[in-house]
Design a protein around this nucleic acid. Structure first.
Lengths: 346, 346
DNA sequence: CTGAAAGCGCTTACAG
DNA sequence: CTGAAAGCGCTTACAG
């Protein structure tokens, strides 16, 4: 490999000067700068990032932590329906990270991974920061990260500390909007097939719905609420069970779009038509929404704002050592009305 | 951070000894080993991987390259239906990589990425090797990698060199099996909605089908062959077009399971029943196959063997500098008969 | 504006 | 079996 030493020799300067040119230091005579640049091109030099990481005590790498998990596998779960939205979000994260020339790392995680262990492994890799996507509420990694000095941003789970903050959609407002949409269509008996109530999005969406109901002078009927899990299949099963137990509702709010897909299938199998017999709503606004039958009324999460915002926050923490505790970013959501919802037919 | 120097001091030995204990050198007295271990535990020491990488001239990191792409984004496309199978495969790759304590890296790639540029960026990162998944036939990265000294294995695209090899399913045989299955059910007019003919899996599957037909004394009718692209939607559109032009076929071979899903939808919209009116087959055997209606007859790709095999090959190249040119791994495929295929009804 | 020297945290011949 | 010294390829005070 070409080293800075060789560049220095060819350019007839010291390695110090080469380094300075590379790092855009001022106080370099144009002539030196010129000579060094020529040598760099001639030799096809590119600095060794490992050496840079060592001396700077920090690499240009951002660790990615995904989902609740025991075994430490990050990509394993990505194909699951419950993570469909995150796949899309990940794209924007990667885009932002890549545009500032950081790499994304999936650290291998040992089995016996205590919080300390996890932190230590990030530290020995000298990662500049970490982005944690969709962790569960009691994830051991959160513990360590919020008190460590490694900048980190959590998406869809809460983590706050001197060098940690989080990003999330305004789930409460989104759920409120969509529930109000149903109420305005005349629905009064509304079923809720939600993901889980212990994680952040699940909790908030439930809360938002309750809020909307309360405003309308209604309360949520516990018999119409099912915390099924976030997969398409979970929602499918839960909807079937719900239908077998009672079917006096005119609308069903699913916890996500992919869940709504499961719900739709269960309804069709029961010969119920959407939206004529029952209105159905999703959450997320993934691309598939346009392909369901009928196209899904849902709440759009602004993944661009979320992804870019998360990276932005992270970079500002990385660059500003002395930063004050960064405040969380709450991204607005927006109701998208398609054809899976309609007025109550007397 | 705790350094080996501190460990040495606490244990009352030299850093050399600490290093030797860590790297499992023999020729260490049990007593020394004991003392060092104690110090390590006491201090919670873990070696700095960046420093290790520098001195060893190699990091414990494997770069991941995914899909044909201009912009250098790896995760962006993962959600597309055409990559559904790869998501599953990726899981096994990660599992294998992680079990030997390597990290997976998605290097950020600059826009003007020439082959040399790509190689240089891997080199300055000191990656131990790279796994390239589903690249297109003329990918610029392949060029560089096959002549570079960075060990690399290509999955589903061909790349061979002194330090490069590839892994793929036996697509030819799989396509042959499934075509013969249809032939044995009495089908003679068989349509093919295939992904693309320029990439490796597409080419091989087409070839296998032709082979089976030829054996039966038949030839492929060009009017019944559509190279649509690999997405569900592509297959959906292609099937619609096909049906609008001619419908004198009794079976349809889709290029993948996800494509078969698109095909099924198009057939239903034309009021054709599967398998009574038309038999349909997929390829891959993804989990969704059991959820389609009817469950899909398909060819199973052994993703475990592919993933583990790829990592195995890579590690053997990494560990054995002087290795001879490694031979490619071709993983057997297996016909899985479900309910989307049936005999021709007179 | 420029360079010699020290140092980042490790490993590895080389001596003993 | 053990350690002092050199070195991996950079950057960064410190002098000048």
């Amino acid at each position: 490999m070409v080293t800075s030493k060789q560049v220095a020799r060819v350019a007839g300067v010291s390695r110090t000067t080469v380094s300075r040119v590379l790092n855009g230091s001022t106080r370099i005579s144009p002539e030196m700068r010129q000579r060094v640049h020529e040598a760099i091109v001639t030799l096809g030099y590119e600095p060794d990032v490992v050496a840079q990481s060592l001396v700077r005590q920090r690499s240009r790498v951002i660790a990615l932590g995904l989902f609740p998990q025991e075994v430490g596998l990050s990509l394993s779960e990505l194909g699951q329906t419950r993570h469909y939205f995150y796949l899309d979000l990940l794209k924007h994260i990667e885009q932002s990270v890549t545009s500032v020339y950081y790499d994304l790392l999936m650290p291998s995680r040992p089995q016996n991974s205590s919080p300390e262990h996890y932190i230590r492994s990030l530290r020995t890799r000298r990662v500049a920061g970490s982005i944690m996507l969709g962790l569960g509420p009691g994830d051991s990694r959160t513990q360590g990260l919020i008190q460590a000095d490694i900048p980190s941003v959590f998406i869809d789970s809460m983590g706050q500390g001197k060098r940690a903050t989080y990003v999330k959609s305004d789930n409460v407002d989104g759920a409120r909007q969509i529930t109000e949409h149903l109420l305005s269509l005349g629905h009064r008996r509304i079923a809720f097939v939600i993901g889980q109530t212990i994680d952040l999005p699940g909790m908030e969406r439930l809360f938002g719905a309750q809020h909307a109901l309360a405003r309308a002078g209604l309360t949520m009927d516990p018999a119409l609420v099912r915390a099924s899990g976030w997969d398409t299949d979970d929602a499918y099963e839960a909807t079937r069970t719900l239908l077998s137990e009672q079917r006096d509702f005119t609308a069903l709010v699913a916890g996500s779009d992919l869940m709504a897909i499961g719900t739709l299938r269960a309804l069709y199998e029961h010969d119920l038509r959407v939206p004529d017999d029952i209105s159905v709503t999703g959450f997320d606004d993934v691309d598939l929404c346009r392909y369901t039958y009928p196209p899904l009324t849902t709440v759009r999460q602004d993944r661009i704002a979320m992804g870019q915002g998360a990276v932005q926050l992270l970079l500002s923490m990385i660059d500003d050592e002395s930063a004050t505790e960064p405040s969380p970013l709450v991204v607005p959501t927006r109701l998208v009305v398609r054809h899976s919802t309609g007025p109550v037919l007397a």
